[in-house]
């Protein structure tokens, strides 16, 4: 295991941020840490690289106890913080130079590595402009570039794609896949479930500081909800009328006026809705159940079974 947490707890005052959390991140995969705001993701990551000390439990990274070997562990990992930490008055190149020196990189290796990460994250076009003049997406890519300076074996990304446009996000995913293919273990948090589903080999869903579910996204989906989802707009009264006496064990998620049904085969339900609607052509979305459904099922409060 690259990262191993055993019954790790951390409280701030009387607020328990991480609650007896255990986690195993195997080598060479992309592992997603998912959870609602305040679930304890960032706190968990900080404990992994040793700047937050757990109140109890044990943490090993690369097989080393992080509390005893913080320098040795951090030399081998890279962290992109949730909020960019960049020196705005300096250029991307100068930022990379300053950061590379934190890892004690020396010339000519330092300049060579700066060139490599600039190429890898396509920062070349603005490498010599002050950071404060760059777009948010460019700044985010630079923040990620910083965490690659030391060729990390473990890359920790705290919400790397928040605020990025779709094209940049896709490009970033492919970079992360390249790193993984080259042997880097990636530990990423995100609020985008489509991202987690497409990018991560395994995910852990964290709720109030505890792992409530862990595994490959496809397995999690299969374990919790039927594979087909039907989404439509209807009030609770309309819903009762549409389903009239049918499907007592049908799983559904309602958020306001939007309701999603999960079933093994969507066709009979669609037929029934069309029948009940008597010619009125209500817009329906039929799609495969995805990780977002599971996330909401596990973390949300509005999922009920049956009528």
């Amino acid at each position: 295991m690259i990262v191993q947490l055993r019954a790790v707890s951390k409280s701030f005052g009387d607020r328990l941020a991480v609650d007896a959390l255990s986690l195993d991140v195997p080598a060479g995969i992309c592992f997603g840490l998912l959870g609602p705001n305040g679930a304890g993701k960032t706190t968990t990551l900080r404990m992994i690289y040793g700047v937050t000390r757990p109140n109890s439990g044990a943490i090993q990274v690369f097989g080393l106890d992080i509390s005893r070997n913080p320098r040795a562990v951090r030399a081998r990992l890279g962290v992109t913080l949730q909020q960019n930490v960049l020196i705005e008055a300096l250029t991307p190149e100068e930022n990379l130079r300053v950061f590379g020196r934190y890892h004690l990189l020396r010339e000519p290796e330092l300049s060579r590595r700066i060139g490599e990460v600039i190429d890898f994250l396509e920062l070349g076009s603005h490498a010599k402009m002050p950071v404060r003049q760059l777009s948010g997406g460019f700044q985010r890519r630079l923040a990620i570039a910083l965490s690659l300076m030391n060729r990390p074996e473990l890359l920790i990304l705290d919400e790397p794609t928040t605020g990025l446009d779709p094209a940049v996000r896709l490009a970033l995913w492919s970079r992360i896949r390249e790193l993984r293919a080259a042997g880097t273990t990636v530990l990423v948090t995100t609020h985008y479930m489509d991202e987690a589903q497409r990018l991560c080999d395994r995910v852990a869903i964290v709720l109030a500081g505890k792992v409530v579910e862990e595994g490959p996204p496809a397995d999690l989906i299969a374990a919790h909800l039927a594979p087909e989802a039907v989404e439509l707009d209807c009030s609770p009264d309309e819903e009762a009328a549409l389903l009239a006496g049918d499907s007592p064990s049908l799983r559904r998620l309602r958020v306001g006026n939007r309701v999603t049904f999960y079933l093994d085969n969507a066709a009979p339900l669609i037929e029934q809705i069309r029948r009940q609607d008597r010619g009125r052509h209500r817009p329906l979305v039929v799609r495969p159940t995805n990780l977002e459904d599971i996330f909401l099922a596990l973390t949300g409060t509005s999922l009920e079974a049956g009528l």
Binding site: Y49, V51, P70, R71, A72, R74, A75, L77, G78, V79, L81, Q83, V85, I87, F99, Y102, H103, L104, L146, S147, N150
Partner: peptide, 14 residues
């Protein structure tokens, strides 16, 4: 404001 030390402490700097 700059959170410079947060970044340093992701590296071997203590």
């Amino acid at each position: 404001f700059e959170k410079a030390y947060d970044a340093m402490l992701t590296t071997p700097i203590e």
